[in-house]
Amino acid sequence: MTELPNPAPKPTWREWLMTDAPASRRQARAAAWYAGWCAFRGNTLAMAGLIVLIVLILAAVFAPWLATHDPFAQDLAMRLKAPGEEGFLLGSDSLGRDIYSRLLFGARISLYIVALVALVAPLLGLIIGTIAGYMGGWVDIVLMRFTDIFLAFPRLILALAFVAALGAGIENAVLAISLTAWPPYARIARAETLTIRNSDYIHAIRLQGAGAVRIITRHVWPLCISSLVIRVTLDMAGIILTAAGLGFLGLGAQPPSPEWGAMVSEGRKYILDYWWVATIPGLAIFAISLAFNLLGDGLRDVLDPKESKS
């Protein structure tokens, strides 16, 4: 596929990437990425997850062109139409809005929430966890008790308290979810750091006079990030559901915004007679959660440094 019409002595892209003896920094990095990609590509399920996610992202980006209706346009005469009826591809909801179009625009909100939480929470956890793990002593005790306090609260209740304090809205919901989601990441990062801290390569760089900040950011982080990425992808489903829960309680995305969780809770009232109103956004949440899960499993195989040691 990547064969280029090169003259004989010049290696093909694939050979260049597969080499065991890279000739430059750039090639070494590219080869490492390529090897990871090859390993990932071999995992069919993970690839399926990735494809679902790419499709979702494309759908969110091109929503205005893909949508058949205005997602906010109400038409009470057309309420609760079954999928396929009257040009409603996936049916209409209680206010006669097209579920398919709302789903497409809702993907933007849901992915936005997921992306923001996925950036903020693990980063917070990574910083706190690695500092606690690397410094040890009283720094560790203070930071980990602090983490325990956050862990002790039920997640949704804590998020509710934050939203109540910060005010309703998507950004605040994201912030609230992030603030409740970081403790598990801190625990993972700390556990990883504890094993990394006593390894000889950390001792070796300490013997070169490297300071704690350099060791944590350049030597510990790269090894923690992989397990965090895996954990985050596995947690995505929970994050989406928490966002949906907040939406349901009126503290997340505000109506009429087509956030998926809010759509499910709206359809809840009609679930017995008009199944599609709640089921279809529910299926969308299910699909994205499953996609993230599969992706996470695949990433674990590629990223886990313990596995990649040959």
Binding site: R25, A28, D200, A204, I205, L207, Q208, K309
Partner: peptide, 26 residues
């Protein structure tokens, strides 16, 4: 210092270039 186990004394994600480069820079 040179450590006992060469499999444990090099950072698994750093190239030889980076290991030596960082040391020299420090």
């Amino acid at each position: 210092m040179v450590f006992q186990d060469p499999y444990a004394s090099l950072h698994p994600r750093h190239t030889v270039d980076r290991v030596l480069g960082e040391t020299l820079q420090l």
